[in-house]
Design a protein around this nucleic acid. Structure first.
Lengths: 190, 190, 190, 190
DNA sequence: CATGAATGAGTATTCATTCAT
DNA sequence: GATGAATGAATACTCATTCAT
């Protein structure tokens, strides 16, 4: 029996594999066997690191939200035109969602109620990154009585749903972000 | 007048049950046992009506798209202001998506690749109802060079993603539709 | 593939196998695989007949109590000397416990809390057969103020514990019953 | 004077935890993880102290028999009425069985064949404490030809089975012992 | 039209145990 | 003395599906 190449910390590998598979196939369609196989472990061995499949999902979600927020942060920190800031934030979010880290994709793709026992924790994590957008929208110079909540829901919905139709190579996340924000900003009367 | 349903035909009941369960719990989380139980049948008996779970999903999807298109039709047929027409179409779509027929909800909730063998057919069905929106958007009086495709994707994404955050009783589909369309239409400069 | 010899009702076979294995090895040490293997089924197939391992145990217990009560009935129905009636009841119980039906042995051997979810039902079943002894002891002509409850507990304990030390071939159930009852009945002063 | 326990020796803690858990939940239902967790160790660490779960059980059993015999000794050493001696021995045994040391409870609760590899050693240990009762019964002034072996089996069975029905707070071990012995000793004719 | 009985492959999870460090 | 990481085998259970009746 060949001694396993004891890389000393295979937990991150497990997390990476789970993130990749959850992002690709979804939570329900990914088995613990799949994940274990992807890192050359036996299924039972995963339980040394995570108490359950749901806890493993939480760990991926947490890392996903951390990365989304990290990607958003530089865009939101920029001084200058608030519309430009929003566009950059959208571009960063789309980039993560569509082409970037598997972790971020999981946060958008996997519905909290796929893992009922931890659903509230997943929802709370989602709320965290949405909060970042609230602030960017709050800073926008808008006509009085504009419904900023509806604006946030609309924009985030448009961004997140793009996972459904996006095919890499056609539009870039940056280009999409620009188009979406322009549609909101520019007057529509011909 | 609808043709009188043959009294001994339980197929529509099966379809209804499947639609309800797929809409509530998702495709993967619904078992053939669940569906059979909901109509007082045994699991094996479903296979008299449908060759597989995936075919059953296709049938629900087909009916779902038919209903979405039927709900959209009157709104789209209205003469007069194209923006108002679009708003009405959005309201109709949201109503079906959020509170209306289980069938319509399935079309939005269930991802085609949850049923890989029939995924292309599901995608084609989705395209059908999206096409209705294309026309409504085409009719809009817009400044030249407006990206109508992006507009459609943005609007549909915002609408469809609402299944994620919508809680009945707070906002009505009609009110949401109005707000979303207004955000697009009205100038954003304060 | 050879067509399974469709004996038309294999459920009783499953029950028999479960009873035998539970009696021999105990509940915890018997796996659903063991039981399925004993009747030439696949493990999953058992779940067509029983919703869970615990429900299977309940079914065995129910049959076990039925048999114990059936074995007790003729002894208890006998007219004549109540001491003789008690002795016969003990003999019948011991016979079932030690050499008779696997079902009866399960009732004594398997502790209700081995199957926590159904433990109350198992306890209720145990109470049923103990009740038969209560009546036999009630009929005994005893000195006033004799503690009949203690007598029942003592006698039943002595009988049931015999599963622990009994080796077939040495003492017969009948002989044991006679000896136990005599020890209670005959005066101990030399 | 007991030799001062070396302060850094956690083996007795492990033994205590195992005894408690085996007594509470049974041998099969207690995992090495449970035991390790109860003393703040990791499962693997137990194997420094015990070669296997079965050896751990043997150690608990040995301590259990030692304690049972120690509890019995003073009662058996008493001069005077042999019936009173027996009653005291029963009371001591019941006290250990029902409310006293976890170790003693394990000896009664855990069946030797739950741990097949060490079963003979467990049986031998059980025999040790039963031997103490043999002597007490041998001393009883009984009519000739009384079956003393049956008397021992009956009494011990009654005592040991009490673990099944005993609920603390209702009867005290002492009271039970008195009642059981009285039932044997006093004439039953009214 | 539908059932009753079963299959076979799969699911997440648990367990006693090992061993290099 | 004990840990961290893993193994390998087992466990109860679920699922879509089949097919003779």
């Amino acid at each position: 029996m060949a001694p396993a190449p004891r890389a000393d910390n295979r937990l991150p590998l497990v997390l990476d594999a789970a993130a990749r598979l959850f992002a690709e196939k979804g939570y329900g369609a990914t088995s613990m066997r799949d994940i274990a196989g992807a890192v050359g472990m036996l299924p039972g061995s995963l339980y040394y690191h995570f108490a359950s499949k749901e806890e493993l999902l939480v760990a991926v979600y947490e890392e996903g939200v951390r990365r989304i927020k990290a990607a958003l942060a530089p865009a939101l920190a920029q001084p200058g035109d608030p519309w430009q800031r929003l566009e950059n934030a959208c571009a960063a979010h789309l980039a993560g969602l569509l082409e970037g880290s598997d972790y971020g994709q999981v946060v958008i793709r996997v519905r909290p109620d796929d893992a009922p026992d931890v659903a509230p924790r997943l929802v709370a994590l989602r709320d965290e990154y949405e909060h970042a957008f609230s602030r960017a929208i709050h800073d926008l110079p808008l006509p009085p009585r504009t419904d900023r909540r509806a604006l946030r829901l609309m924009l985030l919905g448009a961004l997140n749903w793009s996972q459904t139709w996006y095919r890499p190579g056609k539009d870039s996340p940056q280009a999409l972000a620009r188009r979406f924000v322009r549609l909101l900003r520019d007057p529509m009367e011909p």
